[in-house]
């Protein structure tokens, strides 16, 4: 996995819960170009343990001087976002992966409808830069809790003009997906990122209105949830490892010095998929990658975010 060593050049408190970090290469070189919708995985050393969280790149892809990520503080998590908020300051050094795009704009689309909820706005900011540059037809619908939680609204208004539509929950403004998706011209694609319920409802509504799957795009990263400890048995290498409650299987394997493949670490890309050979309990799937049928079948698992409630899980690696 190719990585980049970056330094935090600026930190901006955007809203009460959101901080915006500007990252530059430690060696002063330009950063790699990327495409709108890309993310990077940030490595953090928290109490001697390596955490890796995916964050969308929200700067313009034209800007190779610096990368921009925004982190929403999540108190109920294993500490990655809290660490970013409390420990990472100007001058902090971090390691990030090269950008990966799991949320690319469709080049065949004739019109793009972007639907963001809360911190889900971030991937759209780089997408909009690309859409503007390419002269594409789009509209952005952005919902947030209250005026003080509307991160980047001013910047977005500058970028999008009257193509920006804001929905402020505290003021009783609600987005009607039904209305949004009616009467859209053929060749329209819809993209959504935000809270789980919003993403699921939008996709369901679109399907119910006859939109084909190829025109629906969403991105969601999960954080590895905390659970009970269990043991994984790696069939090919003949190793048994304990997975503590606050560690993912992927992290446990890495702690043990193994280098299993990974890409997004948020259950979205499918790169780390492993075959389940046996399990004396139940698999607890937390990813967005496997289909419901695959989850039920129980012979695949994403070690980056999923766990098992069992004594022993045997994996083909």
């Amino acid at each position: 996995m190719t990585t980049l060593n970056v330094r935090v050049a600026a930190v901006e408190q955007v809203t009460e819960l959101v901080k915006h970090f500007t990252l530059v290469q430690q060696n002063g070189q330009p950063l790699p170009r990327f495409s709108g919708g890309s993310h990077v995985v940030v490595s953090m050393n928290i109490n001697g343990r390596n955490h890796r969280n995916p964050y969308s790149l929200m700067g313009s892809p034209d800007n190779t001087e610096s990368y921009h990520i925004s982190v929403r503080r999540q108190e109920q998590s294993r500490g990655g976002s809290v660490y970013m908020h409390d420990q990472v300051t100007v001058g902090s050094e971090l390691q990030i992966t090269y950008p990966v795009n799991l949320f690319a704009i469709s080049k065949l689309a004739h019109k793009h409808i972007l639907v963001a909820g809360g911190i889900g706005i971030t991937p759209f900011m780089s997408q909009i830069a690309d859409l503007n540059r390419l002269g594409q037809h789009y509209e952005l619908h952005y919902a947030y809790r209250s005026p003080e939680h509307g991160a980047f609204v001013e910047q977005l208004r500058e970028m999008c003009g009257d193509r920006l539509h804001c929905y402020v929950e505290s003021e009783g403004q609600r987005m009607s997906f039904q209305q949004l998706l009616s009467q859209q011209p053929l060749g329209t694609h819809v993209y959504t990122c935000g809270p789980d319920a919003m993403v699921k409802t939008l996709l369901l509504t679109a399907r119910d209105m006859g939109w084909p799957e190829s025109h629906l795009h969403s991105e969601q990263f999960s954080a590895p949830p905390i659970g009970d400890a269990f043991v994984i048995s790696l069939a090919q290498s003949g190793i048994d490892l304990e997975v503590p409650g606050d560690m993912s299987m992927l992290e446990a394997m890495e702690e043990a010095g193994l280098e299993p493949p990974f890409l997004c670490r948020g259950g979205a890309c499918g790169r780390c998929e492993l075959e389940v050979l046996a399990c004396d309990g139940a698999l607890m799937h937390n990813d967005h990658y496997l289909s419901d049928a695959e989850k039920t079948a129980g012979n695949k698992i994403m070690p980056c975010v999923s766990r098992a409630s069992c004594q022993k899980l045997v994996l083909n690696i």
Binding site: L181, S182, Q183, G210, H215
Partner: peptide
């Protein structure tokens, strides 16, 4: 006539 059709058309 295609311009008269919208997303959701089969």
């Amino acid at each position: 006539q295609l311009g008269n059709y919208h997303m959701g058309t089969q």
